[in-house]
Amino acid sequence: MNETYSAFAGFAQTWGLLYFMILFGVVLAYALWPKNRKKFDDAAQIPFRED
């Protein structure tokens, strides 16, 4: 049982890290993509609107 847990934990740590690094890269690229700038600028101004 302990050997199975260690193997699974090693697999999860390695591939989980890779998965989250790729996910972070995709989210970062989406946030910095020039086409999305207006959408994020509009969202940043929501707290300052008076309506």
Rank of each mutant, 00 (worst) to 15 (best):
Y30N: 05
A12C: 11
Y5W: 10
V26S: 02
R49K: 14
V26G: 00
Y30H: 08
M21N: 08
L23E: 08
L32M: 09
D41K: 13
Y30D: 07
W33A: 08
A12H: 14
L17G: 14
E3D: 11
D41V: 13
T4H: 14
P47Y: 05
A12G: 14
V27S: 12
F8L: 15
A7R: 09
Q13R: 11
M21L: 14
L28A: 15
K35M: 02
K39N: 01
G16D: 01
A9G: 03
K35A: 02
T14Y: 03
L17S: 04
A12N: 12
K38L: 04
A44N: 11
K39M: 04
F11M: 12
L23D: 05
Y30L: 06
L18A: 08
N36M: 00
V27N: 06
W33P: 08
A12Q: 13
M1A: 15
D42S: 15
A43G: 00
L17Y: 08
V27T: 13
K38S: 06
A7F: 11
Y30M: 13
A7G: 13
T4V: 07
G16F: 02
F11W: 15
G10R: 05
L28C: 10
L32Y: 07
K38G: 05
A29N: 01
E50Q: 14
F24Y: 15
P47V: 00
L17A: 12
Q45K: 15
L23P: 10
A7N: 07
V26Y: 03
W15A: 02
L23S: 13
T14N: 07
F48H: 04
K35F: 04
D51A: 07
Q45A: 14
A29Y: 10
K38P: 05
